[in-house]
Structures are given as structure tokens and as C-alpha cells.
Amino acid sequence: MGANEGSLLDKQFQQVKKQAQQQQYQQMAQSVKPKQTWVKNAVAAFLVGGSITAFAQIIQNIFQSAGLAQKEAGTATLMIMVFLGAFFTGLGIYDNLGKFAGAGSIVPITGFANSIVSPALEFKREGFVYGVAAKMFTIAGPVLVYGFVTSVIIGLIAYFFQ
């Protein structure tokens, strides 16, 4: 029994020692990591994201001045922006924009279009069923699922507390 306890203690001691060693190494790894360029990224995201949304606003204003109601003009603008996001993904431009702008081109709805069109394009070679259709929502899927879940929760809150 004594020997058993000893080996158990020894095992625990080894485990603690290993964890400490791993922690020490992870700190060292952290210290040599190149710095992320936060300021440059934030400026790029602000400029590109701002330009995309300003462009969308111009389109919406054109639709409104042509006689569409605000809500309908908004829907028409979304359709145009989704098309443009998909179109520039197809041309192979949107990924380069994303590399530069980060969240600036991911957050607007053009980025949503990019997240659906890029896997669809990529997996075309695996066929239209198991490739395009099955893989299309690998990135956008989680956004949709949790978007719907959130809207249901908000809807319930609004229903019960109004």
C-alpha cells in the first residue's frame, strides 16, 4: 500500500512539474511573438468599412430619390451589396481586401456574401451536392444559427415584457 501511495504521489508530482514546465514555455513563446499591428489594422478597418457602408448609403439615397420607400430602398440596397460582395469574391479581389481591412470588410453584408461564396467556389470540384451545397454554409452557418437564436430570445423578451 505504501509503495502504491508513493507512486501515486510521484505521478502527481511529475504532472505538476510538467504543467509548470509547459506554463514556463508558453510564457516564453508569448514573449517572442511578433506584435500585431493593432493601430494599422484599426485604421484600415475604419476606412474600408466606412467606405463600403458610405457607398451603400449613396445607393440607398438614389433608390429613395427615385421613389422607393425607405424600407424598400434598404432591401434593394442589401441586394446590390450582397451581389457586389459575391461578385468581387468571384473575381478574386475580396480576399485581398479582407487581408488589408480585416473586420472592415468582414462586418458589412458584403463580407457575409464573401463567407458564403468563397466556400461555394472552393468546393465546386467536389461536386454540386457534397461540394457547393454542403460546404456553402461552413463559415456563415454558425452566424446564421446564433443570429436566429438571438432573434428568438429577443423576440420572447419583447413579447413578455412589453
Binding site: G98, N114, S118, L121, F123, I139
Partner: peptide, 17 residues
């Protein structure tokens, strides 16, 4: 890229590491 990470045309940023 397509096996380990994201589709090549996805507009994402890679970390410096």
C-alpha cells in the same frame, strides 16, 4: 489552406505568427 484553414477566397486576416 482548404484542408486545415479556410477557403482561399475568404477575406480574413492571418495573425503575425
Amino acid at each position: 489552406e482548404r484542408q486545415y484553414r479556410y477557403p482561399t477566397e475568404l477575406g480574413s486576416q492571418r495573425p503575425m505568427t
